[in-house]
């Protein structure tokens, strides 16, 4: 499935060139939701190459793979397009109760990378983006205007956004309008 989005269609195609500096579609990814209790932590770490983050709202990663804490028993696994970890994970976790569901196509990634990224987000998101309140490496589900998103800060001025595909058009338009006042 390395050609997932390449061969398929991106929900951004209808956006007609609507753009702004620092706003881009994220590269293709393979995505899974991993659910389970404490007994999946160490087998998952063996497969992923890093420990699943257990602190609330924190992401961890290595070698291009990332796990985002979304809830106390819920992680969003992001791996490079086509790099599938599901079978290895299922094998490693074995009999420990868990659920692994692919969501590669459910959502799309958007990267907001500009010096005023936090301010642009503050147009539609009620969270505090001060680095003390939302440090680099923090990730969380939240709302941007009327769209639910997963927001992940990967740099002081860099945010990765995961959004369900049917909300992507709305979110993109909103961000472009939000960014317009900082132009």
């Amino acid at each position: 499935m390395s050609d997932v989005i390449v061969a398929g269609r991106s929900p951004f195609e209808a956006l007609d060139g609507l753009s702004m500096p620092g706003l881009a579609a994220a590269p293709d990814r393979t995505r899974h939701v991993l659910r389970g209790r404490d007994d999946i932590h160490s087998p998952a770490a063996e497969v992923l190459g890093f420990a699943l983050p257990t602190d609330a709202c924190r992401a961890a990663g290595a070698g291009g793979r990332h796990a985002l804490w979304l809830g106390p028993d819920e992680w969003l696994l992001l791996t490079p397009a086509g790099e599938r970890v599901d079978k290895a994970l299922a094998f490693a976790i074995g009999d420990a109760p868990h659920a692994l569901v692919e969501v590669s196509h459910r959502q799309v990634g958007i990267i907001l990378d500009r010096p005023d990224a936090a301010q642009v987000l503050s147009v539609g998101c009620a969270l505090d983006f001060d680095l003390a309140a939302f440090p680099v490496g923090m990730c969380t589900r939240t709302l941007f205007a009327k769209a639910e998103i997963v927001l992940w800060r990967t740099g002081e001025n860099v945010f990765q956004i995961e959004v369900w595909r049917s909300f992507a058009d709305y979110l993109w338009r909103y961000l472009v309008l939000a960014g317009a006042e900082f132009a």
Binding site: R9, P11, E13, A14, V123, G124, A145, K146, A147, R165, S166, F167, D169, Y170, L171, R173, Y174, L177, A178
Partner: peptide, 18 residues
Amino acid sequence: GMARGDLFDPVRTTPIHG
């Protein structure tokens, strides 16, 4: 605020909408 026109509500479309 900005919840007007195109942005009043998200308009959800399917992959086959086009």
